[in-house]
């Protein structure tokens, strides 16, 4: 499946089908992230069930140092 993650085109393996799958694939399950799918924020409680589709635009953001 081809999706865009943080502006970069990414080809995901077949078994990655949910937001949780993406987190697992990139090994960021422990990280504190906020995820947007096609400009809509995905509720944390729905990561496991939220399906992803070909062409999705995913934004994965986190808190960084700032003033």
């Amino acid at each position: 499946m081809n999706v865009t993650i943080n502006g970069q085109d990414v080809q995901l393996p077949e078994h990655v089908r949910t937001i949780s799958g993406i987190r697992k694939h990139f090994n960021i399950e422990q990280a504190l992230t906020i995820i947007e799918q096609n400009k809509k924020i995905v509720d944390k409680n729905r990561y496991d069930s939220q399906p992803i589709s070909d062409g999705d635009r995913i934004e994965i953001v986190h808190f960084v140092g700032g003033g």
């Binding site: 990139f26 994965i60 986190h62 960084v64």
Partner: peptide, 18 residues
Amino acid sequence: TFALRRMNVFQPDQPNFL
């Protein structure tokens, strides 16, 4: 205070202060 930025998912091991 903190800022929000894209995470570098391609290098997930980078430490994060929070």
